[in-house]
Simulated assay, not measured.
Amino acid sequence: MTVTYLLVDGENIDATLGTSILGRRPTPEERPRWDRLLSFARDTWGQPANGLFFLNASNGLPMTFVQALRALGYTPVPLSGTEDQKVVDIAIQRTLDAIADRDDDVMLVSHDGDFLESVEGLLDGERRVGLIAFDEFRNTGFTPLKHRGLQFFDLEHDTHAFNSTLPRLRIIPIEDFDPAQFL
């Protein structure tokens, strides 16, 4: 049976949320509800979803967070390496490349352009490939891949992964415009 692999680049999401949206370190209640992302992946494509949450554990393992991820149904992937290695990026790239040898679908949760080549390699016309990110911060290199079948999902608005509305300035498609949001 085909499954959807949900690959989460948590560091990238946390950095974008903190630096680009909130302007400060997010509090726990301002972070995505990771269980909703797993449900979104399962419901969107109507098949089981395996969540892999990649963590840089070079300075130790955040056991409370790891236990919470496990309880939500994720497989934590704790990694270590030298200071100059982007261990999470390396592991996600390797995982994307390994999925290319399988028939499974994949959703990547990241804004990072480091994954462009690996994502492009998955666009074979057979599998479904999605990118979950804040649309306005998604690496622009992904945009041309939409014509090859890459599906885009907004981390806040499509997945409903947040408990409150984030202070984002984003372009609103006219069919989604609701003046009540501004009154």
Rank of each mutant, 00 (worst) to 15 (best):
D112L: 11
A100I: 02
R102K: 13
Q93G: 12
A98E: 06
T95S: 13
L96P: 00
G121C: 08
G81H: 03
T82Q: 14
V88P: 04
T75D: 08
I90Y: 09
P78Q: 13
D114I: 02
S118C: 05
D104K: 08
V106H: 03
M107Q: 05
D101R: 02
V87I: 11
S118L: 04
V77L: 08
S80V: 14
A100D: 04
D104N: 09
L123Y: 03
D101A: 10
G73W: 02
I90L: 14
L123I: 06
F115D: 08
Q93K: 08
D103N: 13
E117I: 14
M107K: 01
M107E: 00
D103T: 14
D104R: 07
I99H: 02
G121H: 06
S80W: 14
L108S: 09
I92T: 06
D101F: 05
S80D: 13
L116Y: 05
K86M: 03
Q93C: 10
A71Y: 10
D124Q: 06
T82R: 15
G73M: 02
K86I: 03
L108Q: 08
A98M: 12
L79P: 06
D84R: 14
K86A: 11
G121T: 09
G81A: 11
P78R: 12
L122A: 02
G113A: 11
G113F: 05
P78W: 10
V119Q: 03
V87R: 09
Q85Y: 07
D103H: 14
D124S: 04
D112T: 05
P78T: 13
S110D: 01
D97N: 11
F115V: 12
P78Y: 06
L72C: 13
V109G: 00
L72T: 09
H111S: 12
D84Q: 12
S118Q: 06
V106Y: 05
T75R: 11
D89K: 08
P76D: 12
A71P: 06
D103K: 13
G121I: 01
I99M: 00
G121S: 10
V109D: 04
L123K: 04
A100L: 00
T95W: 02
L116W: 06
P76E: 09
A100H: 02
S80I: 15
I90A: 13
I90K: 08
L96F: 04
D114Y: 01
E83Q: 14
K86Y: 07
Q93A: 13
S80P: 04
A91P: 06
L79G: 10
A91C: 10
E83H: 14
A100S: 12
G73K: 07
T75Y: 11
V109C: 00
H111W: 02
V87E: 09
A71H: 14
D101T: 02
Q93D: 10
V119G: 01
S110K: 08
D97K: 10
D114E: 11
L116C: 10
L96N: 09
R102S: 14
Q85G: 11
D104Q: 05
